[in-house]
Nucleic acid binder design. Sequence first.
DNA 1: TCACTACTGAACGAATTGTTCTATAATAAC
DNA 2: GTTATTATAGAACAATTCGTTCAGTAGTGA
Lengths: 194, 194
Amino acid sequence: MKTQKTDRRSERSRRIIGEAFIALLREKRYEDITVQDVLDRADIGRSTFYTHYYDKEDLLDSHIEAMIDALSQHMEQAPGTTMLLIPSLGLFQHVQEQRRLYHAMTRGGGLEIHKRTMQAKLSQQVEQRLQATLKKPTPTLTLTLAAQVVAGTFLTLLQWWAEHDMSISPKEMDGYFQRLVLPGIQNMLTDEVL
Amino acid sequence: MKTQKTDRRSERSRRIIGEAFIALLREKRYEDITVQDVLDRADIGRSTFYTHYYDKEDLLDSHIEAMIDALSQHMEQAPGTTMLLIPSLGLFQHVQEQRRLYHAMTRGGGLEIHKRTMQAKLSQQVEQRLQATLKKPTPTLTLTLAAQVVAGTFLTLLQWWAEHDMSISPKEMDGYFQRLVLPGIQNMLTDEVL
DNA sequence: TCACTACTGAACGAATTGTTCTATAATAAC
DNA sequence: GTTATTATAGAACAATTCGTTCAGTAGTGA
Protein backbone atom coordinates (compact mmCIF):
# COMPACT_ATOMS: atom_id res chain seq x y z
CA MET A 1 0.00 0.00 0.00
CA LYS A 2 1.29 3.36 -0.90
CA THR A 3 0.57 6.53 0.93
CA GLN A 4 -2.05 8.16 -1.19
CA LYS A 5 -2.67 11.83 -1.81
CA THR A 6 0.43 13.31 -0.27
CA ASP A 7 2.11 14.56 -3.39
CA ARG A 8 2.81 18.24 -3.00
CA ARG A 9 2.38 18.74 -6.72
CA SER A 10 -1.24 17.62 -6.64
CA GLU A 11 -2.16 19.87 -3.79
CA ARG A 12 -0.36 22.76 -5.38
CA SER A 13 -2.21 22.26 -8.64
CA ARG A 14 -5.59 22.03 -6.97
CA ARG A 15 -4.84 25.11 -4.93
CA ILE A 16 -3.66 27.13 -7.90
CA ILE A 17 -6.61 26.07 -10.00
CA GLY A 18 -8.98 27.00 -7.22
CA GLU A 19 -7.42 30.39 -6.73
CA ALA A 20 -7.57 31.11 -10.44
CA PHE A 21 -11.20 30.08 -10.50
CA ILE A 22 -12.16 32.32 -7.61
CA ALA A 23 -10.25 35.20 -9.14
CA LEU A 24 -12.09 34.72 -12.41
CA LEU A 25 -15.42 34.58 -10.63
CA ARG A 26 -14.83 38.14 -9.50
CA GLU A 27 -14.53 39.25 -13.09
CA LYS A 28 -16.93 37.05 -15.02
CA ARG A 29 -20.04 35.07 -14.52
CA TYR A 30 -19.49 31.38 -13.96
CA GLU A 31 -21.15 30.54 -17.24
CA ASP A 32 -18.82 32.81 -19.13
CA ILE A 33 -15.68 31.29 -17.67
CA THR A 34 -14.09 28.70 -19.92
CA VAL A 35 -11.72 25.96 -18.91
CA GLN A 36 -9.18 27.73 -21.07
CA ASP A 37 -9.56 30.83 -18.93
CA VAL A 38 -8.73 28.81 -15.85
CA LEU A 39 -5.75 27.20 -17.53
CA ASP A 40 -4.36 30.56 -18.61
CA ARG A 41 -4.93 32.18 -15.26
CA ALA A 42 -3.51 29.28 -13.29
CA ASP A 43 -0.78 28.76 -15.85
CA ILE A 44 -1.10 25.02 -15.98
CA GLY A 45 -1.48 22.48 -18.73
CA ARG A 46 -4.84 21.39 -20.00
CA SER A 47 -4.24 17.75 -19.16
CA THR A 48 -3.39 18.71 -15.61
CA PHE A 49 -6.78 20.26 -15.12
CA TYR A 50 -8.58 17.20 -16.32
CA THR A 51 -6.63 14.91 -14.02
CA HIS A 52 -8.01 16.85 -11.07
CA TYR A 53 -11.48 17.75 -12.18
CA TYR A 54 -13.94 16.00 -14.38
CA ASP A 55 -15.49 19.17 -15.55
CA LYS A 56 -15.75 22.89 -15.17
CA GLU A 57 -18.84 22.15 -13.19
CA ASP A 58 -16.94 19.71 -11.04
CA LEU A 59 -14.62 22.53 -10.11
CA LEU A 60 -17.53 24.69 -9.02
CA ASP A 61 -19.14 21.80 -7.18
CA SER A 62 -16.04 21.09 -5.14
CA HIS A 63 -15.98 24.66 -3.89
CA ILE A 64 -19.68 24.75 -3.16
CA GLU A 65 -19.45 21.48 -1.33
CA ALA A 66 -16.61 22.82 0.78
CA MET A 67 -18.71 25.86 1.62
CA ILE A 68 -21.68 23.72 2.55
CA ASP A 69 -19.52 21.47 4.67
CA ALA A 70 -18.11 24.45 6.52
CA LEU A 71 -21.59 25.75 7.22
CA SER A 72 -22.80 22.32 8.29
CA GLN A 73 -19.89 21.92 10.63
CA HIS A 74 -20.76 25.21 12.28
CA MET A 75 -24.31 24.00 12.62
CA GLU A 76 -23.35 20.78 14.32
CA GLN A 77 -20.70 22.20 16.58
CA ALA A 78 -23.02 24.86 17.89
CA PRO A 79 -24.54 24.04 21.27
CA GLY A 80 -28.08 22.78 21.21
CA THR A 81 -29.79 26.05 21.70
CA THR A 82 -33.47 25.69 22.29
CA MET A 83 -34.30 29.28 21.51
CA LEU A 84 -32.59 29.50 18.15
CA LEU A 85 -33.25 27.39 15.15
CA ILE A 86 -29.79 27.75 13.76
CA PRO A 87 -26.63 29.32 15.14
CA SER A 88 -27.10 32.19 12.76
CA LEU A 89 -24.70 34.57 14.44
CA GLY A 90 -21.87 32.08 14.13
CA LEU A 91 -22.80 31.42 10.54
CA PHE A 92 -22.83 35.11 9.67
CA GLN A 93 -19.46 35.50 11.33
CA HIS A 94 -18.08 32.55 9.45
CA VAL A 95 -19.30 33.96 6.18
CA GLN A 96 -17.70 37.28 6.93
CA GLU A 97 -14.38 35.58 7.50
CA GLN A 98 -14.75 33.88 4.14
CA ARG A 99 -16.05 37.00 2.53
CA ARG A 100 -13.73 36.89 -0.44
CA LEU A 101 -15.05 33.48 -1.41
CA TYR A 102 -18.68 34.38 -0.86
CA HIS A 103 -18.25 37.63 -2.68
CA ALA A 104 -16.78 35.88 -5.70
CA MET A 105 -19.50 33.26 -5.67
CA THR A 106 -22.22 35.86 -5.40
CA ARG A 107 -20.82 38.02 -8.14
CA GLY A 108 -20.10 35.14 -10.46
CA GLY A 109 -23.49 33.58 -9.98
CA GLY A 110 -22.05 30.35 -8.67
CA LEU A 111 -24.10 30.47 -5.51
CA GLU A 112 -27.36 30.93 -7.31
CA ILE A 113 -26.86 27.80 -9.31
CA HIS A 114 -26.39 25.75 -6.17
CA LYS A 115 -28.61 27.67 -3.84
CA ARG A 116 -31.10 24.90 -4.15
CA THR A 117 -28.53 22.37 -3.00
CA MET A 118 -27.41 24.52 -0.10
CA GLN A 119 -30.95 25.15 0.92
CA ALA A 120 -31.76 21.45 0.76
CA LYS A 121 -28.84 20.58 3.03
CA LEU A 122 -29.43 23.41 5.44
CA SER A 123 -33.16 22.86 5.69
CA GLN A 124 -32.55 19.21 6.43
CA GLN A 125 -30.44 20.11 9.42
CA VAL A 126 -32.91 22.75 10.50
CA GLU A 127 -35.69 20.21 10.33
CA GLN A 128 -33.78 17.90 12.63
CA ARG A 129 -33.18 20.71 15.07
CA LEU A 130 -36.81 21.68 14.98
CA GLN A 131 -37.99 18.19 15.58
CA ALA A 132 -35.62 17.81 18.51
CA THR A 133 -36.96 20.88 20.26
CA LEU A 134 -40.62 20.14 19.76
CA LYS A 135 -42.59 18.37 22.43
CA LYS A 136 -45.62 17.17 20.58
CA PRO A 137 -45.38 15.23 17.33
CA THR A 138 -45.92 17.54 14.42
CA PRO A 139 -47.02 16.89 10.86
CA THR A 140 -44.01 16.37 8.65
CA LEU A 141 -45.27 18.79 6.05
CA THR A 142 -45.44 21.62 8.55
CA LEU A 143 -41.96 20.87 9.79
CA THR A 144 -40.54 20.62 6.31
CA LEU A 145 -42.05 23.88 5.18
CA ALA A 146 -40.89 25.69 8.28
CA ALA A 147 -37.38 24.36 7.81
CA GLN A 148 -37.40 25.34 4.16
CA VAL A 149 -38.39 28.86 5.03
CA VAL A 150 -35.79 29.19 7.76
CA ALA A 151 -33.01 28.00 5.49
CA GLY A 152 -34.32 29.99 2.55
CA THR A 153 -34.58 33.20 4.52
CA PHE A 154 -31.11 32.73 5.90
CA LEU A 155 -29.66 32.26 2.42
CA THR A 156 -31.66 35.20 1.12
CA LEU A 157 -30.19 37.44 3.78
CA LEU A 158 -26.75 35.99 3.15
CA GLN A 159 -26.99 36.78 -0.52
CA TRP A 160 -28.29 40.27 0.09
CA TRP A 161 -25.52 40.80 2.59
CA ALA A 162 -22.80 39.66 0.21
CA GLU A 163 -24.18 41.81 -2.56
CA HIS A 164 -23.95 44.81 -0.29
CA ASP A 165 -20.33 44.19 0.57
CA MET A 166 -21.20 42.90 4.03
CA SER A 167 -21.12 46.44 5.33
CA ILE A 168 -23.46 45.51 8.19
CA SER A 169 -22.07 43.66 11.17
CA PRO A 170 -22.85 39.97 11.67
CA LYS A 171 -24.61 40.87 14.91
CA GLU A 172 -26.97 43.20 13.16
CA MET A 173 -27.66 40.67 10.45
CA ASP A 174 -28.33 38.07 13.08
CA GLY A 175 -30.72 40.45 14.80
CA TYR A 176 -32.67 41.01 11.63
CA PHE A 177 -32.76 37.32 10.92
CA GLN A 178 -34.08 36.46 14.37
CA ARG A 179 -36.74 39.12 14.30
CA LEU A 180 -37.91 38.23 10.84
CA VAL A 181 -37.96 34.47 11.14
CA LEU A 182 -38.65 33.40 14.70
CA PRO A 183 -42.14 34.87 15.07
CA GLY A 184 -43.32 33.13 11.93
CA ILE A 185 -41.95 29.80 13.03
CA GLN A 186 -43.52 30.10 16.45
CA ASN A 187 -46.80 30.98 14.85
CA MET A 188 -46.53 28.08 12.47
CA LEU A 189 -45.80 25.59 15.19
CA THR A 190 -48.35 26.96 17.62
CA ASP A 191 -49.16 24.77 20.60
CA GLU A 192 -46.06 22.74 19.95
CA VAL A 193 -43.94 25.00 22.14
CA LEU A 194 -40.44 25.84 21.08
CA MET B 1 -44.87 53.28 -42.51
CA LYS B 2 -45.45 49.62 -42.61
CA THR B 3 -47.39 47.67 -40.08
CA GLN B 4 -44.74 45.98 -38.08
CA LYS B 5 -44.86 42.62 -36.36
CA THR B 6 -47.97 41.23 -37.92
CA ASP B 7 -46.44 38.51 -40.00
CA ARG B 8 -47.94 35.21 -38.98
CA ARG B 9 -44.72 33.41 -39.80
CA SER B 10 -42.81 35.33 -37.19
CA GLU B 11 -45.29 34.64 -34.47
CA ARG B 12 -45.48 31.02 -35.45
CA SER B 13 -41.72 30.68 -35.29
CA ARG B 14 -41.45 32.32 -31.92
CA ARG B 15 -44.25 30.20 -30.60
CA ILE B 16 -42.78 26.96 -31.91
CA ILE B 17 -39.34 27.83 -30.62
CA GLY B 18 -40.75 28.63 -27.23
CA GLU B 19 -42.72 25.41 -27.06
CA ALA B 20 -39.68 23.38 -28.03
CA PHE B 21 -37.64 25.16 -25.40
CA ILE B 22 -40.16 24.49 -22.65
CA ALA B 23 -40.45 20.87 -23.73
CA LEU B 24 -36.68 20.49 -23.58
CA LEU B 25 -36.57 22.08 -20.15
CA ARG B 26 -38.63 19.21 -18.87
CA GLU B 27 -36.01 16.78 -20.04
CA LYS B 28 -32.71 18.57 -19.59
CA ARG B 29 -31.18 21.27 -17.53
CA TYR B 30 -31.06 24.65 -19.22
CA GLU B 31 -27.30 24.55 -19.38
CA ASP B 32 -27.34 21.22 -21.17
CA ILE B 33 -29.73 22.41 -23.84
CA THR B 34 -28.00 23.48 -27.03
CA VAL B 35 -29.33 25.73 -29.72
CA GLN B 36 -29.15 22.71 -31.98
CA ASP B 37 -31.51 20.86 -29.66
CA VAL B 38 -34.02 23.65 -29.98
CA LEU B 39 -33.65 23.72 -33.76
CA ASP B 40 -34.20 19.98 -34.03
CA ARG B 41 -37.14 19.95 -31.67
CA ALA B 42 -38.79 22.96 -33.23
CA ASP B 43 -37.83 21.78 -36.69
CA ILE B 44 -36.68 25.15 -37.90
CA GLY B 45 -33.59 26.44 -39.60
CA ARG B 46 -30.64 27.76 -37.69
CA SER B 47 -30.81 31.17 -39.29
CA THR B 48 -34.44 31.47 -38.29
CA PHE B 49 -33.59 31.08 -34.66
CA TYR B 50 -31.00 33.81 -34.77
CA THR B 51 -33.35 36.24 -36.45
CA HIS B 52 -35.63 35.97 -33.43
CA TYR B 53 -33.22 35.57 -30.56
CA TYR B 54 -29.77 36.90 -29.99
CA ASP B 55 -28.79 33.98 -27.89
CA LYS B 56 -29.84 30.88 -26.10
CA GLU B 57 -29.85 33.04 -23.02
CA ASP B 58 -32.03 35.58 -24.75
CA LEU B 59 -34.58 32.85 -25.28
CA LEU B 60 -34.61 32.05 -21.59
CA ASP B 61 -34.71 35.71 -20.65
CA SER B 62 -37.75 36.39 -22.77
CA HIS B 63 -39.67 33.67 -20.97
CA ILE B 64 -38.53 34.75 -17.54
CA GLU B 65 -39.44 38.31 -18.30
CA ALA B 66 -42.89 37.25 -19.39
CA MET B 67 -43.31 35.35 -16.15
CA ILE B 68 -42.17 38.31 -14.09
CA ASP B 69 -44.48 40.63 -15.99
CA ALA B 70 -47.40 38.35 -15.34
CA LEU B 71 -46.64 38.25 -11.63
CA SER B 72 -46.16 42.01 -11.50
CA GLN B 73 -49.45 42.58 -13.24
CA HIS B 74 -51.20 40.47 -10.65
CA MET B 75 -49.51 42.50 -7.96
CA GLU B 76 -50.67 45.79 -9.36
CA GLN B 77 -54.18 44.76 -10.24
CA ALA B 78 -54.82 43.42 -6.76
CA PRO B 79 -56.77 45.76 -4.52
CA GLY B 80 -54.74 47.71 -2.01
CA THR B 81 -55.10 45.34 0.86
CA THR B 82 -53.78 46.76 4.06
CA MET B 83 -53.53 43.44 5.84
CA LEU B 84 -51.54 41.58 3.25
CA LEU B 85 -48.18 42.50 1.87
CA ILE B 86 -48.76 40.85 -1.44
CA PRO B 87 -51.79 39.23 -3.02
CA SER B 88 -50.21 35.85 -2.43
CA LEU B 89 -53.34 33.80 -2.94
CA GLY B 90 -53.85 35.27 -6.38
CA LEU B 91 -50.22 34.71 -7.19
CA PHE B 92 -50.32 31.08 -6.11
CA GLN B 93 -53.43 30.60 -8.19
CA HIS B 94 -51.84 32.21 -11.18
CA VAL B 95 -48.80 29.98 -10.85
CA GLN B 96 -50.97 26.92 -10.68
CA GLU B 97 -52.65 27.88 -13.90
CA GLN B 98 -49.25 28.22 -15.51
CA ARG B 99 -47.97 25.13 -13.81
CA ARG B 100 -46.55 23.54 -16.94
CA LEU B 101 -44.31 26.53 -17.47
CA TYR B 102 -43.23 26.78 -13.87
CA HIS B 103 -42.66 23.09 -13.68
CA ALA B 104 -40.40 23.15 -16.69
CA MET B 105 -38.51 26.14 -15.39
CA THR B 106 -38.05 24.58 -12.00
CA ARG B 107 -36.90 21.25 -13.36
CA GLY B 108 -34.62 22.78 -15.95
CA GLY B 109 -33.03 25.16 -13.50
CA GLY B 110 -34.06 28.22 -15.46
CA LEU B 111 -35.78 29.79 -12.51
CA GLU B 112 -32.80 29.48 -10.24
CA ILE B 113 -30.62 31.40 -12.61
CA HIS B 114 -33.03 34.31 -12.61
CA LYS B 115 -34.40 33.99 -9.12
CA ARG B 116 -32.29 36.95 -8.17
CA THR B 117 -33.90 39.05 -10.88
CA MET B 118 -37.39 37.94 -9.92
CA GLN B 119 -36.71 38.60 -6.29
CA ALA B 120 -35.34 42.04 -7.06
CA LYS B 121 -38.43 42.99 -9.00
CA LEU B 122 -40.86 41.51 -6.53
CA SER B 123 -39.16 42.96 -3.49
CA GLN B 124 -39.22 46.37 -5.09
CA GLN B 125 -42.97 46.21 -5.40
CA VAL B 126 -43.31 44.80 -1.92
CA GLU B 127 -41.27 47.68 -0.57
CA GLN B 128 -43.57 50.16 -2.20
CA ARG B 129 -46.60 48.42 -0.74
CA LEU B 130 -45.02 48.34 2.68
CA GLN B 131 -44.15 51.98 2.60
CA ALA B 132 -47.67 52.88 1.55
CA THR B 133 -49.23 51.07 4.49
CA LEU B 134 -46.89 52.41 7.14
CA LYS B 135 -47.81 55.44 9.14
CA LYS B 136 -44.50 56.52 10.56
CA PRO B 137 -41.43 56.99 8.40
CA THR B 138 -39.21 53.95 8.62
CA PRO B 139 -35.52 53.47 7.95
CA THR B 140 -34.95 52.41 4.39
CA LEU B 141 -32.72 49.55 5.39
CA THR B 142 -35.40 47.99 7.55
CA LEU B 143 -37.94 48.31 4.79
CA THR B 144 -35.61 46.90 2.18
CA LEU B 145 -34.69 43.91 4.25
CA ALA B 146 -38.28 43.19 5.12
CA ALA B 147 -39.26 43.40 1.48
CA GLN B 148 -36.39 41.13 0.48
CA VAL B 149 -37.48 38.53 2.97
CA VAL B 150 -41.11 38.68 1.92
CA ALA B 151 -40.25 38.25 -1.73
CA GLY B 152 -37.60 35.64 -0.98
CA THR B 153 -39.90 33.57 1.19
CA PHE B 154 -42.61 33.72 -1.41
CA LEU B 155 -40.26 32.49 -4.12
CA THR B 156 -38.87 29.83 -1.82
CA LEU B 157 -42.35 28.49 -1.22
CA LEU B 158 -43.12 28.75 -4.90
CA GLN B 159 -40.11 26.70 -5.80
CA TRP B 160 -40.81 24.11 -3.15
CA TRP B 161 -44.38 23.94 -4.36
CA ALA B 162 -43.40 23.44 -7.98
CA GLU B 163 -40.89 20.77 -7.04
CA HIS B 164 -43.65 18.89 -5.27
CA ASP B 165 -45.97 18.92 -8.25
CA MET B 166 -48.15 21.59 -6.67
CA SER B 167 -50.12 18.90 -4.92
CA ILE B 168 -51.20 21.36 -2.22
CA SER B 169 -53.95 23.83 -2.96
CA PRO B 170 -53.13 27.49 -3.51
CA LYS B 171 -55.25 28.32 -0.47
CA GLU B 172 -53.17 26.12 1.76
CA MET B 173 -49.95 27.52 0.37
CA ASP B 174 -51.26 31.00 0.96
CA GLY B 175 -52.10 30.06 4.53
CA TYR B 176 -48.61 28.81 5.19
CA PHE B 177 -47.13 31.87 3.61
CA GLN B 178 -49.21 34.23 5.71
CA ARG B 179 -48.49 32.43 8.92
CA LEU B 180 -44.78 32.23 8.26
CA VAL B 181 -44.15 35.72 7.01
CA LEU B 182 -46.60 38.17 8.56
CA PRO B 183 -45.54 37.80 12.21
CA GLY B 184 -41.92 38.46 11.36
CA ILE B 185 -42.75 41.53 9.36
CA GLN B 186 -44.96 42.90 12.08
CA ASN B 187 -42.23 42.26 14.58
CA MET B 188 -39.69 43.91 12.39
CA LEU B 189 -41.77 47.00 11.86
CA THR B 190 -42.93 47.27 15.44
CA ASP B 191 -44.62 50.51 16.42
CA GLU B 192 -45.10 51.36 12.81
CA VAL B 193 -48.47 49.63 12.67
CA LEU B 194 -49.40 47.73 9.60
C1' DT C 1 19.60 6.29 -5.70
C1' DC C 2 15.35 4.68 -7.76
C1' DA C 3 10.73 3.80 -8.80
C1' DC C 4 6.67 6.46 -9.24
C1' DT C 5 3.75 9.95 -10.16
C1' DA C 6 2.42 14.46 -11.78
C1' DC C 7 3.11 17.94 -15.07
C1' DT C 8 4.00 19.95 -19.80
C1' DG C 9 2.70 20.84 -24.29
C1' DA C 10 1.10 19.71 -28.38
C1' DA C 11 -2.07 17.65 -31.27
C1' DC C 12 -6.51 15.77 -32.29
C1' DG C 13 -11.57 14.99 -33.51
C1' DA C 14 -15.91 16.27 -32.11
C1' DA C 15 -19.35 19.49 -30.97
C1' DT C 16 -21.19 24.02 -30.71
C1' DT C 17 -21.63 28.60 -31.94
C1' DG C 18 -22.99 32.56 -34.64
C1' DT C 19 -22.67 34.42 -39.43
C1' DT C 20 -23.53 34.69 -44.25
C1' DC C 21 -25.55 33.52 -48.44
C1' DT C 22 -29.00 32.01 -52.07
C1' DA C 23 -33.17 30.06 -53.33
C1' DT C 24 -37.85 29.37 -52.02
C1' DA C 25 -42.18 30.10 -49.96
C1' DA C 26 -45.53 32.65 -47.40
C1' DT C 27 -47.60 36.91 -46.50
C1' DA C 28 -49.72 41.49 -46.58
C1' DA C 29 -51.12 45.25 -49.22
C1' DC C 30 -53.00 46.95 -53.14
C1' DG D 1 -55.25 38.26 -58.51
C1' DT D 2 -50.92 40.58 -58.80
C1' DT D 3 -46.91 42.29 -56.67
C1' DA D 4 -43.53 43.76 -53.57
C1' DT D 5 -42.02 42.46 -49.20
C1' DT D 6 -40.43 39.54 -45.69
C1' DA D 7 -39.49 35.08 -43.34
C1' DT D 8 -37.67 30.75 -43.75
C1' DA D 9 -34.80 26.73 -45.33
C1' DG D 10 -30.56 24.91 -45.76
C1' DA D 11 -25.99 24.71 -46.43
C1' DA D 12 -21.50 26.21 -45.75
C1' DC D 13 -18.13 28.69 -42.94
C1' DA D 14 -14.52 30.05 -39.43
C1' DA D 15 -13.93 30.32 -34.66
C1' DT D 16 -14.23 28.39 -29.99
C1' DT D 17 -14.44 25.11 -26.79
C1' DC D 18 -14.16 20.67 -25.13
C1' DG D 19 -12.20 16.41 -23.49
C1' DT D 20 -8.73 12.90 -24.76
C1' DT D 21 -4.32 11.10 -25.82
C1' DC D 22 0.55 10.61 -25.70
C1' DA D 23 5.54 11.16 -25.28
C1' DG D 24 8.88 13.65 -22.88
C1' DT D 25 10.28 15.99 -18.63
C1' DA D 26 10.64 17.01 -13.87
C1' DG D 27 9.44 16.64 -9.12
C1' DT D 28 8.49 13.54 -5.26
C1' DG D 29 8.60 10.05 -1.70
C1' DA D 30 10.82 5.99 0.05
